[in-house]
């Protein structure tokens, strides 16, 4: 009989559960219950606007001014914006468009259909809103990047593409006279 008392502590083990390890709440992207659907993360309804972007939609949000693609960049361009643009371009665009925008990125070398160079006449003359539109809605074989690139970053990338276009089409006469003189020295 006495021996059976030894088993009492075992009864306490019944209290050992992992409730605190896996609490009844959703972690991001956890599979949902049948009420919620396959994932706790719900897909956005069409036309959803992030709360932080809740204002009258202008050229900044749509890339359009007066119903046409906007020519001007609708934000103040400074060094910080360009650096942000360069970083985001490096993450999202170089795999296909290449670091200089020549359209020969790594994924293209592995067989993706080659995009046009960003330095063609059409794209250099294209309005700024066109680049915004391509990133937002995709273009032919290129998918939309709207889910991954927020509005402000899309303009930063556009600004950086403008800088790239300048860099690949610079003329000697655009340089400072000082630098021109130095260049002339180097050239035999």
């Amino acid at each position: 009989m006495r021996a059976w008392f030894g088993l009492i502590p075992l009864a306490f083990l019944a209290g050992c559960r992992n409730d605190m390890y896996d609490q009844p709440r959703y972690e991001p992207l956890e599979p949902g219950s049948h009420l919620i659907g396959p994932s706790s993360a719900r897909p956005l309804l069409p036309g959803t606007v992030a709360r932080s972007e809740n204002r009258v939609l202008g050229a900044f949000d749509t890339g359009l001014s007066n119903g046409k693609l906007t020519e001007e960049l609708p934000l103040k361009i400074d060094r910080a914006v360009l650096e942000r643009g360069a970083e985001r371009y490096g993450i999202f665009c170089t795999p296909c468009h290449g670091a200089t925008g020549d359209g020969r990125g790594m994924i293209v070398q592995r067989g993706f259909s080659p995009p046009p160079s960003l330095h063609t006449k059409e794209l250099r003359e294209a309005p700024a809103g066109h680049f915004f539109d391509v990133i937002t809605n995709g273009h032919g074989a290129m998918y939309s990047y709207a889910a991954r690139v927020p509005t402000r970053d899309r303009w930063a990338i556009t600004a950086y593409i403008r800088a790239l276009q300048l860099s690949q089409n610079a003329h000697v006469k655009d340089l400072d006279p000082e630098d021109q003189a130095r260049l002339a020295e180097i050239k035999p």
Binding site: P95, I107, R110, G111, F112, S113, A141, M142, Y143, Y145, A147, R148
Partner: peptide, 11 residues
């Protein structure tokens, strides 16, 4: 899935 397919639509 959309992210994978941005390349694997062709590759």
């Amino acid at each position: 899935t959309h992210t994978c397919m941005s390349c694997h639509s062709q590759i």
